[in-house]
Design a protein around this nucleic acid. Structure first.
Length: 123
DNA sequence: CCTATGACAGACA
DNA sequence: GTGTCTGCCATAG
């Protein structure tokens, strides 16, 4: 289903990003999926660097599906890593975050979307 | 209107 | 494991 309401998608994505708890992270695709359109991961990324709400978003808690920081170090990646580290997120020596450990799981039960991601990772 | 771009993701070699 | 290619779709020019 194509998103006929970009603004709505953006608003929901922003809300979701705002609700990522400190110490956890979520992937672009995961946020897009929860916001209603799994195909718009790139728009989630776009929101993070272009939205007027940027200042109010915990943008550093969004990483790519591999659990890695997508932002180039010189364009904020360094800051992002610093912030995450200070929130307790651990990186392995290659710079990867273990999403099974630090991946945000909204609500209390395992969400389908996250379960899918976990399944993919285990498979 | 048409092309290029992107803080992505999944599939494939 | 890594490197490439392709689909995606809102914005920008």
């Amino acid at each position: 289903v194509k998103s006929r309401h970009p603004r709505e998608f953006t608003a929901r994505a922003a809300d979701l990003i705002r609700s990522i708890p400190s110490g956890l992270v979520a992937s672009y695709g995961f946020i897009a999926s929860l916001a209603g359109d799994a195909r718009q991961a790139r728009q989630v990324a776009w929101i993070l660097h272009s939205s007027s709400e940027k200042q109010r978003l915990p943008w550093h808690r969004v990483v790519n599906s591999e659990g890695k920081i997508s932002l180039p170090p010189e364009r904020g990646g360094r800051l992002q890593r610093r912030r995450l580290a200070s929130e307790g997120v651990r990186f392995d020596r290659r710079g990867f975050i273990d999403l099974r450990k630090y991946g945000w799981n909204p609500g209390r039960g395992p969400s389908r979307a996250l379960a899918r991601l976990d399944l993919d990772r285990l498979t």
